[in-house]
Design a protein around this nucleic acid. Structure first.
Lengths: 192, 192
DNA sequence: GTCTATAGCGCGATAGAC
DNA sequence: GTCTATCGCGCTATAGAC
C-alpha cells in the first residue's frame, strides 16, 4: 500500500489528464511528457492502462469521500455543510492549469468503454456521495434549516447530479463564474 | 444540403456510437460495422473524423432545438412545457439499444480533445437550451405557475445542467427509473 | 526501477481500380 | 460511390540491457 513518489507523480499526472481530456483522450506518452519518466517505465508501476485508471479512481474516491465525511461530521449547520460540499466541486473545477471536471463525471461519460472494476468504482462514488448528501439534507430538514419536498435520498442524488452537470456545462462556457452562479441558485432551491 | 440515405445512415450510426462511447471511444470501423459500408468509403461523405463529428453535432442541435422551440411555442402551461422539455432527455436516454446520454453532454466532457468548430457547436447548444428554459421559467413565474428566486437566465442554466447531470449519473446506476425520479424532484423544486 | 528498442495492432486517411 | 489495398502513425505492452 505504501506508494512511492514516482507512483504518486504518475497518478497525479494521469488524474489531471483524465479530468481534462478523458481516459480515451490520453496516452502513456501524455503522462510521460508531464512526469520525468519514459512511457515504457510507467508499466512497471501500473501494468495496464485499465489498472492505472482503477488506481486513479480508487485514490480519488477515498480522498474525496474523506473530505466529504469530515464535512458531514463537522458541527456546522446543514446549509453550511451543503455549501462546503458544493465548494469541493468549485475547487476541483479551478484546480491546476485548465478547467477540470470531476473525475467520476468524466468517467461516467466514458462508462461504456471502461472495464468492470472501473465501472463499479464510478457507481460507488455516485452512491456514496448521494448518501452523504441525503444525510445532510435529512438533518437540515429536521432542524428546519433546509426546505424541500420528497425523499432525502432522491434529493441527495439531485444535488449531486446537478453539481456534476454544472461542472460539465460551466467548463464549456462561462467557467468558474458560471459554476458559482449555478451552485448558489441550486442551494437556494433547498432553502440554503 | 440534400442528404443521401448513406449519409443519413452514417450520421445515425456515428451519433448513436458517440452518445454511448464518446467521440474518442469510436472509430470508422465501429461505424462500418453498423452501416453496410466499408470504412474507407465513409471518407467520401465525411473527409475527416472532425468533420463527421461536426456534422453529427449540427444535425443534433438543429433537430433538438426544433422540438424545444415547438414546446416553447405551444399553448400549454409553463409547468407542462418544463415537463415536456425534461421528457426529451428521458427519451434520449432510452433511445436505441443501450442507455445514451445527450450528445452534447458527452462531447462537453470530451471538449478538450475537440476542434474549435465542434467546441463552438457544443457551446451554442448549451446557450440555446438555457435560453429557451429561461423563457419558460420567466413565463411561469409571471403567470404564478412556477416559483423560484433569482435570475431566470441562471435558473434556466440550472435546469439544463441538472438534467444533463441527471442523465450522466442515472445511466451509470439506476437507469431510466432513477432519471425519472431526478426529473420529478427537480421540477418540484421550481414548483412544477 | 528505469532505460532503449521493438513487437503488434488499430487508427485516420489516401490511391486507384471499378 | 464503393471497393481493395496500403501508407504512416500512435497506441499499449513486452523484452532485455543496465
Amino acid at each position: 500500500m505504501t506508494r512511492t513518489d514516482t507512483q504518486t507523480a504518475i497518478l497525479d499526472a494521469a488524474q489531471e489528464l483524465i479530468q481534462t481530456r478523458g481516459a480515451n483522450g490520453i496516452s502513456y506518452q501524455h503522462i510521460s511528457d508531464m512526469v520525468r519518466i519514459r512511457k515504457a517505465s510507467i508499466h512497471y508501476h501500473f501494468p495496464t492502462k485499465e489498472k492505472l485508471v482503477e488506481a486513479v479512481l480508487r485514490r480519488y474516491r477515498v480522498q474525496f469521500l474523506g473530505v466529504v465525511d469530515a464535512i458531514v461530521a463537522s458541527g456546522v449547520s446543514a446549509p453550511a455543510k451543503l455549501r462546503r460540499y458544493a465548494d469541493l466541486f468549485a475547487a476541483t473545477l479551478r484546480e491546476g492549469a485548465g478547467l477540470k471536471v470531476c473525475l467520476c463525471g468524466m468517467l461516467g461519460a466514458e462508462l461504456a468503454t471502461l472495464g468492470r472494476p472501473a465501472v463499479a468504482q464510478v457507481q460507488r462514488f455516485y452512491r456514496e456521495n448521494a448518501e452523504r448528501l441525503a444525510r445532510i439534507l435529512r438533518q437540515g430538514r429536521a432542524s428546519g434549516t433546509l426546505h424541500f419536498v420528497g425523499d432525502p435520498r432522491t434529493a441527495g442524488m439531485v444535488v449531486f447530479s446537478a453539481l456534476e452537470g454544472a461542472m460539465l456545462v460551466s467548463r464549456a462556457d462561462g467557467g468558474i463564474r458560471d459554476f458559482r452562479r449555478l451552485r448558489d441558485q441550486t442551494l437556494k432551491l433547498f432553502g440554503a
